[in-house]
Design a binder for these strands. Structure first.
Length: 669
DNA sequence: CTTAGGG
DNA sequence: CCCTAAG
């Protein structure tokens, strides 16, 4: 058990949290140096804790609370430490041991099946790995130290890679993949055994809050069967069943952002539904708490499972078990509720005075006021005093020192090589050229980029390519010798066998391509895009130009985002980033915010039409399925972040009033 | 460092 | 996406 990891086993391994927030901070509890392994949940429902030993200091059991569970990641906090640990969840990812301490990110199938098999806890147990040293040859000390996988010994998982054989597997194995509920503790109580969600909305409320492990278990495939049509019933009308292989492939692409050559309908459907189920199987807290009673919001979740959430509040164990908000919000939620219940609306009152007086009367649109940005001032001023341009800018830059750490050193290093790079000032068409100083490095700072990606399925591909790229033509802005060296120096061999780079998303064509010997070789049309350094633009197929490191959002990313917002509330971007996007080193919290903003627009823009599964725009970006947009809209309304005019279109009375329980940061928007 | 907004 | 201001 302590002899390290068996080859071909799956393990939950700590993942780096994010590049923006940093691993050490969140995943490495100070002082302890080691993170606790975690187990994701079991079928009996309530389980959100598990006892695991902690290596190497002792083998004493430790409890961990699973607070979040996404497809490939599990987030947990140490149990019983309440307050301080809530802020420090640890993210674990499923990985496979391929030998000699080499890990590769779990494939999609593995993830799915692990989720599935995890339910049958009899069939798995966890062991701690003491073979860190073998595993971690990295230079990243935190990595070495922190590596502590838990293993699910599930050999059979390995056999599930072949889509063609999957079809022959028992339904129990194959079809449950959609039912994330089993993996995520918070879902345990909400999985309806049958009946379509749309129908449930009424009864579910009064439904007996008995754990349905007993009922739902035998009907796994029922759930699934009913789920698919259900999904098609959603206003979005995605009906995977009716789609041809071609269409399924298209949907797959839309969902995961890449093509697939798999022709297996079942396989495609599974994958797509899984990509989407993240959003639609998820229960959302859409209720308001008023006067000590839970009032369901008018808004309905995709599957209307939220009703079940109400039960959580009345159920005794609910508080202890609740998967998401309840734990994450944790203690503060109690406070929140106090506020709500006491009717003192402390939030509002205490917040209001703090607000600048100028905002007082701006009941709705109290957006932050911004004075003109420095850039704007600069550019504006430069447009009429061109001879200053050089010095002015640079002086301003240097005055803003500290915050621009990524610019300054570069200047110091290579001041001469870029004597005068200029860009066209777009301001007012004046055509003034101004120094390009501020654009030297567009990418975000790459703090330990490589080590960061080591555990990121989504990063591997990029990493590999980065290394390759390090040799080819330096772009004009190759002021990054340091980085390049770093890249070359760092052996990208941590997950060497991962032929499936991509974006960590819920796909893995690995199996497919291997088995089909597929014609379509290039699976990864997007991953290249983000090879960083290439700052400029690349020609796209349509002749347009696209920014080089623009990485289109995949549907599943969108789904994750939406889900994240639903859990943590819009605005908690770093939180969402850390938890839901732990496996996506790109996508900073800012990105999330931006994307959400776009989704918001999209969701309301689409309102009038209210038709069309996938807006048949010729947008090169992926179309957002209507159900998702719908949910975005719901969340937006829920969190009263709909702009007034848009809101007018939708609801009438319910606009700015009710702050729901989900809106933890009520009083400020 | 994080969030909000403008570009 | 990028950038910056404001906390």
């Amino acid at each position: 058990m302590w002899d390290g990891l068996k080859v071909n086993t799956l393990a939950w391994v700590p993942a780096r949290a994010s590049r923006s927030t940093g691993y050490a901070k969140h995943a490495k509890p100070s002082g302890k140096g080691l993170k606790k392994p975690v187990y994701a949940g079991d079928r009996t429902g309530k389980l959100s804790t598990v006892n695991v030993p902690i290596y190497p200091h002792n083998t004493q059991a430790h409890s961990v609370h699973v607070v979040e569970c996404y497809m490939e990641t599990v987030v947990a906090v140490e149990e019983g430490e309440g307050n301080k640990q809530v802020a420090d969840p640890v993210v674990y990812q499923l990985a496979r041991v391929v030998g000699d301490g080499i890990y590769i990110p779990a494939t999609n199938d593995e993830v799915m099946n692990a989720e599935d098999l995890i339910d049958h806890k009899s069939s798995l147990h966890f062991v701690l790995d003491n073979s860190q040293t073998a595993v971690c040859t990295s230079n990243d000390d935190t990595f070495d130290q922190d590596f502590m996988p838990i293993v699910c010994e599930l050999e059979d998982i390995l056999k599930l890679e072949d889509p063609s054989t999957q079809e022959e597997k028992s339904d129990a194995v194959v079809d449950t993949t959609v039912d994330l509920s089993k993996l995520n503790p918070q879902f345990e109580e909400v999985a309806p055994s049958e009946s379509t969600p749309l129908d449930q909305s009424g009864d579910k409320k009064q439904a007996d809050p008995v754990p349905e492990s007993a009922e739902s278990e035998p009907s796994i495939s029922t759930v699934c069967d009913s789920w698919k049509p259900d999904f098609s019933k959603l206003k979005g009308e995605i009906c995977l069943d009716n789609l041809s292989v071609k269409e399924l492939q298209a949907t797959f692409k839309a969902t995961f952002g890449r093509e697939t050559s798999v022709k297996d309908k079942q396989w495609l459907k599974r994958r797509i539904s899984m990509g989407l189920s993240n959003s639609c199987d998820v229960s959302i807290t859409t209720f308001n708490i008023e006067n000590n009673e839970v009032k369901k919001d008018k808004l309905e979740d995709c599957n209307n499972k939220d009703e079940n959430r109400n039960k959580d509040l009345t159920r005794p164990e609910g508080r202890n078990v609740g998967g998401d908000d309840k734990i994450l919000a944790g203690q503060s939620q109690n406070i929140q509720m106090e506020d709500h219940l006491s009717g003192s609306s402390k939030n509002m009152q205490s917040d209001a005075p703090k607000r600048p007086i100028a905002f007082e009367d701006d009941s709705q649109g109290n957006k932050r006021v911004r004075k003109p940005t420095r850039r704007y001032i600069e550019e504006a001023s430069e447009s009429d005093s061109r001879d200053y341009s050089g010095r002015q800018v640079s002086s301003v830059r240097s005055s803003g020192n500290g915050s621009r750490t990524r610019v300054k050193p570069i200047h110091n290093i290579q001041p001469v090589r870029r004597p005068l790079v200029t860009r066209q000032d777009s301001l007012g068409g004046s055509g003034v050229e101004i120094p390009y100083v501020s654009r030297i490095r567009r990418g975000r700072p790459r703090e330990n980029f490589m080590s960061l990606m080591r555990f990121q399925p989504c990063g591997i591909g990029m990493a590999t390519r980065l290394v390759n790229k390090a040799h080819d033509g330096h772009d004009p802005q190759s002021d990054n010798d340091v980085e390049n060296q770093e890249l070359k120096a760092t052996p990208t061999t941590k997950w060497p066998l991962q032929p499936e780079p991509g974006e960590n998303e819920q796909y893995s064509e690995q199996s497919a391509d291997i088995n089909n010997n597929s014609d379509e070789g290039h699976v990864d049309s997007y991953a290249d895009v983000d090879s960083d350094e290439n700052i400029l633009t690349v020609p796209t197929a349509k002749g347009g130009m696209r920014r080089k490191h623009h990485r289109p959002w995949t549907l599943s990313e969108v789904v994750k985002l939406v889900e994240g917002v639903s859990r943590h509330g819009a605005g908690r971007w770093s939180e969402i980033k850390r938890i839901a996007f732990a496996t996506c080193p790109h996508r900073t919290s800012v990105d999330l915010k931006d994307k959400w903003r776009n989704l918001l627009r999209a969701s309301f823009a689409q309102l009038p039409a209210e038709k069309g599964v996938q807006n048949s725009k010729k947008h090169s970006s992926i179309p957002i399925p209507a159900p998702i947009l719908l949910r975005v809209r719901e969340l937006a309304e829920m969190q009263s972040q709909v702009s007034p005019d848009l809101r007018a279109v939708k609801f009438d009375g319910h606009s700015g009033t009710g702050r729901n329980a989900n809106d933890i940061r009520s009083g400020f928007l």
